[in-house]
Design a binder for these strands. Structure first.
Lengths: 112, 112
DNA sequence: TTGACATACTGTGCGGCATACAGTATTTGT
DNA sequence: ACAAATACTGTATGCCGCACAGTATGTCAA
């Protein structure tokens, strides 16, 4: 299925999801909990997208994890690391630059 | 430049560049001209990124092209199509939703 | 007048990511 | 008792940003 069908938004997640995860994990959370949380704040992520991303972010050293096996089902809690905070700020600053570019272009389009 | 540091910014371009191209091509432009224009408004794209993207957007039917061979060197002018405008608006609305999510999370982190 | 540099493209290939698909195991609700 | 929800893991696929390589014309200084 190609992108023009109905997957138009796929590309849009690329950078955004990382920023969202790194902001969210300021508070320790496990995967399933994040899925619910993200829906609550008005977005949605595939679990097939979130879980691999969490493993990736951990591999990068941007988040760390620990298993909680003391309550009912085992849960893997993730939390942002100090390095992760640095990355998060870099990504945020790129986001803001891009947001400024879009705003500028939108203005030009409107004014003809 | 921070975007090139160690690839941290790469992912950030994914959705953004398409929005930027679709907004920019409200005015017909050729590739090299876009590169200069984008720098002028405070961003930068690799030519190795822009040219393939333009071919891709055209393949999707979101932009169209025509060769100008009447002046000096041949130039391939691109322009957004009607379908492209629809896509652009969809991408823009996703961008705005994401921007809202980030703003909300940032607030929580600060107050948390 | 030559050769370095800017202009203006095309084509191929690699590695990484979002997502699909498939699967495991425990807990809760009816 | 059995479905649905919870909470994960692993592998495969297609698309994209960018690297690398290449073609060809125009400009300008020595």
């Amino acid at each position: 299925m190609s992108i023009q069908d109905n997957k138009i938004g796929v590309e849009m997640n690329r950078g955004f999801l990382q920023i969202m995860a790194l902001l969210t994990l300021e508070t320790p959370m496990y995967g399933y909990m994040m899925l619910r949380f993200i829906e609550k704040i008005g977005y949605s992520v595939e679990e097939n997208t979130l879980y691999p991303m969490l493993r990736r972010l951990e591999k990068n050293g941007w988040i760390s994890s620990r298993w909680d096996v003391e309550h009912d089902r085992p849960k893997k809690y993730y939390e942002i690391t100090e390095e992760g905070k640095i990355i998060r700020n870099k990504l945020l600053s790129i986001w803001q630059i891009q947001n400024g570019v879009i705003a500028k272009l939108l203005k030009e389009v409107k004014n003809g």
